[in-house]
């Protein structure tokens, strides 16, 4: 291949890709330095552990969101799924820890069904992902309200507390679970045929059909996996928070989209990576912490998120065109 002309455009595109990953890591380091300078307590082991414990459930939702965005989707129902998973966990009358596997099983099953419906609406009924998942979000919300009559009353097995806040050898339990899930997805996306199919379908669904891949089936699968991940995230979040209410995970739909977008997962589908998405989570969490360190009202986090998501998508959109 040597001796062939390298077109400038291709080289520029490659450089941009590397630059992007660089920029993300750079942002993480930069924000950490800023935070550490402003508050010496920031870089202590205890504080970092707290931050990761707090961020882990979001990380799981971002995995879900990224997976769905890869196949040109978007899932606005993730937060509603999280809350529903939390409410579902209270449905088991006993508070015995032995029920925990059962609860996880039920949540995974429920997630699969919900994701299946989302995916069915999107792939078979041609509903836009936005509307389909919006409807799902509202529907679940309604079911939850009806079931709990406004306020959930059930109790959780005490083991959830450990799942949400505990540690193994000093590493937060939920962080370990997040990393295992992320590793699994990373391997799947990078090294398996299914992962390749996901990128092909997200990038060009029409071409995917013409090379013999079933866009419908794979897309459906992504929605299912996404809702299952969101359900698990809900259980870990409720374990972290400690109390169940109808709004567990409220705001996570936006946060997960923001983190994924910052991490370079394209809303147009077909590009983005798990590592990028997790870096996006880190940046988002660091920024939120900075707001606290600076002594600003927490509402600034909302403003910051809004500005960042618009800027980040704008920047990525510009780069794609250049």
């Amino acid at each position: 291949m040597s001796g062939l002309a390298v077109t400038g455009g291709a080289r520029a595109a490659l450089a941009a890709l590397r630059l992007e990953r660089f920029a993300l890591i750079g942002a993480v380091i930069g924000l950490t330095i800023v935070a550490a300078t402003l508050s010496p307590a920031f870089l202590t082991l205890g504080n970092l552990r707290d931050i990761f414990t707090q961020a882990a459930p979001l990380g799981m939702v971002v995995l879900a969101q990224a997976l769905i965005m890869l196949v040109r989707g978007i899932d606005l129902s993730v937060a509603s799924v999280m809350a529903s998973a939390a409410v579902l966990a209270t449905a088991f009358t006993s508070t015995d820890n032995a029920d925990i596997p059962l609860i996880f099983g039920a949540v995974l099953l429920g997630g699969a069904v919900i994701g299946g419906i989302n995916g069915w609406l999107v792939t078979r009924r041609n509903v836009s992902p936005l509307l389909a998942t919006l409807a799902m979000m509202i529907l679940l919300q309604g079911v939850r309200f009806a079931y709990t009559q406004g306020a959930p009353s059930g109790l959780l097995p005490s083991g959830f507390r450990w799942l949400g806040t505990g540690q193994i050898y000093g590493i937060p339990v939920n962080l370990s679970v997040l990393l295992i899930l992320a590793l699994g997805l990373w391997v799947m996306l990078r090294y398996t045929m299914l992962g390749r199919a996901i990128y092909i379908i997200g990038g060009n669904p029409r071409a995917a059909e013409l090379v013999g891949l079933s866009a419908q089936r794979v897309t459906m699968l992504c929605y299912c996996l996404g809702s299952m991940l969101a359900g698990i995230a809900g259980l870990f979040l409720v374990g972290f928070v400690g109390t169940v209410d109808n709004w567990v995970g409220r705001g996570y739909e936006l946060d997960s989209i923001v983190a994924a977008v910052i991490g370079g997962v394209s809303l147009a589908g077909g590009s983005g990576s798990i590592v990028g998405a997790l870096l996006g989570v880190l940046i988002l969490v660091l920024l939120s912490n900075l707001v606290v360190i600076l002594g600003l009202p927490v509402e600034f986090q909302l403003i910051l998120k809004g500005v960042i998501i618009i800027l980040a998508t704008g920047l990525y959109a510009r780069r794609m065109r250049a």
Binding site: Y199, I200, N204, A208
Partner: peptide
Amino acid sequence: GLLAQLPVYANITAPNLTAYTRLGFL
């Protein structure tokens, strides 16, 4: 036809992925 976001090799093997897969891994 083209898979714009994927590299040359993935564009070439797209219709024939099973031939480049062992135990589910590419």
